[in-house]
Design a protein around this nucleic acid. Sequence first.
DNA 1: TATGAATGAGTTTTCATTCAT
DNA 2: GATGAATGAAAACTCATTCAT
Lengths: 192, 192, 192, 192
Amino acid sequence: MTKRELIMDAAASLFAEKGFYAATVEEIADRAGIGKSTVYEYFPSKEHLFRETLKGGLESYMEAMKGRLKQPCSVRDVLTAIGTAHFNFIQKRTSAARILAGENSSQSPWADELLLQLRERRITMFSSLLSQGIERGEFRRVDSRAAAEVFLGVLGVLCMPVLRGGEDDKKGAAERFYHGIDIFFSGILDQE
Amino acid sequence: MTKRELIMDAAASLFAEKGFYAATVEEIADRAGIGKSTVYEYFPSKEHLFRETLKGGLESYMEAMKGRLKQPCSVRDVLTAIGTAHFNFIQKRTSAARILAGENSSQSPWADELLLQLRERRITMFSSLLSQGIERGEFRRVDSRAAAEVFLGVLGVLCMPVLRGGEDDKKGAAERFYHGIDIFFSGILDQE
Amino acid sequence: MTKRELIMDAAASLFAEKGFYAATVEEIADRAGIGKSTVYEYFPSKEHLFRETLKGGLESYMEAMKGRLKQPCSVRDVLTAIGTAHFNFIQKRTSAARILAGENSSQSPWADELLLQLRERRITMFSSLLSQGIERGEFRRVDSRAAAEVFLGVLGVLCMPVLRGGEDDKKGAAERFYHGIDIFFSGILDQE
Amino acid sequence: MTKRELIMDAAASLFAEKGFYAATVEEIADRAGIGKSTVYEYFPSKEHLFRETLKGGLESYMEAMKGRLKQPCSVRDVLTAIGTAHFNFIQKRTSAARILAGENSSQSPWADELLLQLRERRITMFSSLLSQGIERGEFRRVDSRAAAEVFLGVLGVLCMPVLRGGEDDKKGAAERFYHGIDIFFSGILDQE
DNA sequence: TATGAATGAGTTTTCATTCAT
DNA sequence: GATGAATGAAAACTCATTCAT
């Protein structure tokens, strides 16, 4: 692992744990097992380091989503696959995910913007899938933007337990995750 | 308005805008129109001030939810009423809401805890309502915890546009909000 | 003496002794007998502090020159009076003078500019006096700009011994000073 | 050109531009087109490098002055020749000259000392020439030390325009230079 | 010999908090 | 109470210097 990666990993985990401000460059360096000023050999400032961390997380998230989109099956299946990919990403790259999850509480103005962009991209993606599904007759004629937002929110909340402390309840989390996705598709009303 | 309230208001808006770290005590005092050290007459530390701000937002949120629960009508209507109350709260007390929305990106460890508690309380409430609804036959037999989480998430995302910059698109936001709630109840599948 | 002045004095003497870079804010604060961060209550940065120091020296220099210009006597006397004022200033406000003397060796780009401006103002002043003297027939028809520069240089070098360490040789310095001025007026050639 | 010279040249120009502190070893290495630590193969420290640069400038300055002294002509001519040599040196080796010109604004305590020594040597030289001239009856009986200082100062100021930015006004500078020298010899008084 | 990489010591700057009035 | 002024502790950042190759 290159030293740059070492630093980014340390940074990612600390930013995830404590946020941008509370994490100090010294801690990051310590966790990376290097001297404080070495950080500055690789990143011109703490802010740049955070930005890179963010971008890294973002890229690897987008990567994780790849290939889920063009399977020749129902849109419902595609969305479920995306959900699965999302859930897996959260489990494997928890600290990256934690940083990406901080849509609110501005860590810094430009971070907000990047995260907002991510949000928009995801909503656009979902929205277009949902439109497809509607055209194909899979889904009823809902407002695809609203539905996309809902899907986004559902993915978000359902992963929160994992983002929190928890190694503990992985199975439960997964189950509830799929149950939640199901509710998104079928609603909760009793419609016999 | 008492001086204490003056401070808390200033604090709430600044914490909402910039987060706990980036907001300085001096700015807060300035915005409140008082001297910097006066803040310390009313709050022992910046952290306490934040805590109080948080608690204040929390209380007024709980207050806003009150009375929505015991109407003699369908559980669906109760949940919708809660959604409405939530949406109205977000619009009227945007900065309080912004602070409460920062579930992720820890501003401070104990803040996380408080917000986690709020989350739990809300889930419990929703969950119990959903159980009621299931018993009454209004809803199908979903996992009420999972459904509660989903409902929470739906309320969250749908309010984000309002929490962001936006005075702009209030009507659109409201429409999409109710559309989203509807999706929660009915799902998106075409089930003729 | 106000605290601001206390700081500026400490700063002036340290900047004079060691230059902008080698003088640390901590030393300045120590010499002023205050805490390091107090400096920042009065000046937004070390650079600003330096700038103010410079400006202060500049103003008090210009002040010291005032009133020397409009005496109803020969231009030679006016120039000599200016020389005297200059010499006295150097002796009374040695550290301010030392800073102003640093025309070369850039302490910082904008400092250079300020000092260059001072140089220009002085040359202009001398030049105009010299032109007067020429018109009146006191001086021969020299290039007034060149002569002004020479006068400036003469004032400068002749004061250097005082700017250096020396309490030691005050009388000698004064004597040589006036002797030097005389050379400026009469040259060194033997012209009987 | 040896690597040592490469480094010294780069150092000279950077020290001239920015002063001792603002010039970094890295920049110097970059400008010399070598690796940073190679500098340390040739010079034990930045300070030593500066010292060498200074000494180099000093030597080449002394070199430039050589041979001007023993011509069998008037002392006035010798001094003028020295002035010319000085002026030429300033134009050809501007950055070395800039460093040597920084008599004031201490870049470092020992640098001050070296420059002070240079100053003394030059004054001694001028002073002895002037004494000769007085004995020969070329000059009137001035204090030769004072006159030497004045000559030094005159050479200094008159070269400043060249040391500043200026490729622009070379002819004007040269003219004013000789005019200034003339003033040193003849004074400015009208002595018909 | 040459150098990229690493770093420790030191510097500026920030800001919550205290204290005298 | 209310507050301006003062500050210590901590944080980001710089850079000359060293070291392994």
